[in-house]
Amino acid sequence: MDKNANDTFAFDLENRLDDFFSDSLSRPDEPSTVQEPPAPRGRPLKSLKSTLLAIDWEITDDALAAFIGQVDALEGPYETDKVAHTLLRMLRSLGRYVRTHKANAHPDTIKRIMAVYSALERAVDDQLSPREKEKLLSAEVSAFRQLKQQIVASRAARPTAAPTQQPSAQTLLAVGAVIRAIHDLESRVTAELSAIRKDLERLGKS
């Protein structure tokens, strides 16, 4: 914030707080008299943003389930917007990956989710030209692909880091489950990527 712009900071802050906590708001035990304003473009993302903030604070099964549910619900409204639709699918894929792998998920996944969401917010903003949106999507697809490669590389590195002593049957079972989960993720990510590629091709043609 620059100093000149902050001369009226306290005044603006006070007004904002007055508006936010306005006494004219109905109390919970009173019937609501506040009329819902017409939904502007971008408003559907509001719930998703709050869920993302919750995930940023603490990753819980409930928050992830809500996140995936909200992403699924947004796919319909943005079906005709290919850039937004592709970003939503990326979010769903990343969300499912985190839900499956929890603490073992790649540490950059949440950062990636935040970045894709941020791109989605910009993509649904009418101020961007189709060319800019395409560029935005392309950057996100590259980053997504890079993360996928990192996940695959970390999977490949895991067996060499195994301890020299004989693993127990329980450990073997756990390792088997992890490998199955990685295969599952890999096939899911591959399917998503191929769909994204097709979308990009379609965008390039249009």
Partner: peptide, 10 residues
């Protein structure tokens, strides 16, 4: 929370 819950998503 009871006073602002209709304004916030969280």
């Amino acid at each position: 929370f009871s006073r602002i819950r209709h304004r916030i998503q969280s």
